[in-house]
């Protein structure tokens, strides 16, 4: 197999007396969807925080594209092309989809007006429409506040935002948790399209059928450690659940 895009080894993270990660490892390749699963408290969120620059691990190494890196802040992760879709929809409900897509990365007009900080709203709207189209996100109005959209559309915008800016890798923390069946399918479609563009997608989910439907590989975390790795096509929900609960473990994980 080719060299992994992201290769984290033996990460340790303590919160006071609680060991959230006890030597956790994680691997992701370009052009694949890898699911990160585990029971509540297994350390999934902590691991993602460490890999997206939100938290710093106490020990362990993170290699990105073959180079060892430090991720002191979300900005530094972003600079490497790593984006995160958060579980709790980090969007501004009063702003329109285009404004949300460009939040923190607003385009400015060319020339003196741009130096004064004047935004190029037209260009942002145009690019946003193109990005939504490409990802198959259907938004009827690009200039209504995002709070007036349905939950699925809101989540699609949040996903689209990360994907548009992610050069290499996207973490998605339960992106379908609050969605209905049809909307969930839409988001999974978006995930597949992102993979087909050659990005690495890390999906965190509790929904095993969904994990098997969309992933290429699955890595299982238990008590702060990676306990198993599967190829999605060759495994079953029972095996995954067994690995999560400790009934099954792999020596070389």
């Amino acid at each position: 197999m080719a060299e992994p895009l992201l290769d984290a080894r033996d990460l340790v993270k303590n919160y006071g007396g609680v060991q959230a990660l006890r030597g956790a490892s994680f691997t992701a390749h370009e052009g694949e969807v890898v699911s990160l699963i585990g029971d509540n408290g297994a350390g999934k969120s902590t691991l993602v925080k460490c890999l997206s620059g939100v938290e710093q691990p106490d020990a362990g190494t993170i290699a990105f594209a073959g180079r060892e890196v430090a991720l002191p802040s979300p900005t530094s992760a972003r600079a490497l092309g790593i984006e995160t879709v958060y579980q709790d929809l980090a969007v501004a409900p009063d702003l329109d989809p285009a404004a949300n897509l460009f939040l923190g990365r607003e385009l400015r007009r060319a020339g003196p007006l741009g130096w004064l900080g004047v935004l190029d709203k037209k260009e942002m709207r145009r690019r946003a429409a193109a990005a939504f189209h490409e990802l198959g996100v259907s938004i009827q109005d690009v200039d209504v506040p995002i709070g007036a959209l349905s939950g699925g559309q809101r989540q699609s915008v949040a996903v689209a935002r990360s994907v548009v800016w992610a050069g290499r890798l996207v973490f998605m923390d339960e992106p379908t948790a609050a969605l209905g069946v049809v909307q969930r399918e839409r988001v999974l479609d978006v995930i597949r399209r992102v993979r087909d563009r050659g990005l690495a997608v890390v999906l965190i989910s509790h929904n095993m059928p969904e994990v098997l439907a969309v992933s290429d590989r699955v890595e299982v975390l238990r008590l702060g450690r990676r306990v198993a790795r599967f190829t999605a096509a060759d495994t079953t929900v029972e095996e995954l659940v067994g690995a999560m609960t400790g009934a099954l473990s792999q020596e070389d994980a």
Binding site: P74, T75, R78, T84, Y86, A90, V91, A92, P93, D94, L95, L103, G104, R105
Partner: peptide, 10 residues
């Protein structure tokens, strides 16, 4: 609108 979202957006 959403301070946390703004913070996460950099």
């Amino acid at each position: 609108s959403n301070e946390e979202a703004a913070r996460r957006a950099g």
